[in-house]
Amino acid sequence: MDIKERYIRGVLLVCASLSVIAVAAITYTIIAAGWPVFTEYGVFRFLFGAKWLPDADNIQLGILTMIAGTGAVTVCALVIGGPIGILSAVYLAELASKRTSTVIQAFIDLLAGIPSVIYGFWGLVVLVPAIRNYLGSTKGYSVLAGGVVLAIMILPTVVRISADALRAVPKEYRDGSYALGADRWYTIFKVILPAAAPGIITALILGFGRAIGETMAVLMVTGNAKQFPTSLLEPITTITGNIALEIGYSWGLHRQALFACGAVLMIIILLVNFLINRIIRRAAGGIYE
C-alpha cells in the first residue's frame, strides 16, 4: 500500500514539474536555435543593426527598427491603458457597490477571454480606416492603431490585478485617513494607492509583458513597414509580427535570426517574471498577498 502511494506521488510530481520543464525546454530550444546569430553574425550587429535584408546577397539581420516598433506600441499601450485601467480598478474597489463591482468584473473577464485575432480584426476594419480618414495618416496602419488595440488587450489584466491590490488594503487605513479629516480622493491618492503600489506596479509590468509578446492583433494593424517610428501615424513592424510573417518561408541564417528574435522576447519575459517575483516577495507579509 505504501509503495503504491509513493508511486502515485511520483507520477503526480512529474506532472506538476511539467511546467518548469517546459519553461526550461522552451528557453533552451529557442536560444540554441538562434545561437549562430549571436556568435557568427554578432550580438551587436543583430540587436543594433538598422537594416533587415534577409534575401540580399550581403545578408543584413539587424532588428533595431523592430525593437523600436515593439517599444513604441508597448509604450503607447501602457500610456493609454495604464491610467484608464488603474482608475477603473479604483472605481471597482473603492466607489462601486459590491454588486455593481461583481457584474462589471465579470464583463471585464469576458474582455480577457476574447481572442486576440478578434481585436486585430476590429482594429483592421474600424480603427485603421478611422485613423486614415480622421487623423490624416496615409495608410492608417500605424503605431497608434497598434497601441490602442494593445491598450484594450492589457486592460483586463491591469484592472483585475490592480483592483485585487486595492481591495487588499486593510480597512483601518481608510478609517484612519477619514478620521483625520481627509476626504475620499485625498485618502485614495495619499493612502490607498501608495499602499497598493506593489500590486499596481505588478499589474503594469504584467501588462507590459502581454503587450510585448502580443503578435496577431498588432501584426494586423501596424502595417509591416521596417522603419523607425517617427510619428504615431506611421506604420512599423514588431519583433513578434515579423516572426509570424517570415518563419514559414525562411531558411538558414534568416530562420536562425527569427529564433534569435524569439530568444530576445523570451529573455525579456523571464526578466519580467523575475521582477514581479522580487516585488511580490518584497511586499510579502505586507499588502500584496
Partner: peptide, 16 residues
C-alpha cells in the same frame, strides 16, 4: 514555473 509558463508569449510557443 507555472506562472512563468503562463507569461510566455504565444509566438514563442509557436517557435518552440
Amino acid at each position: 514555473g507555472i506562472e512563468t509558463l503562463a507569461g510566455v508569449p504565444s509566438i514563442v510557443f509557436g517557435l518552440f
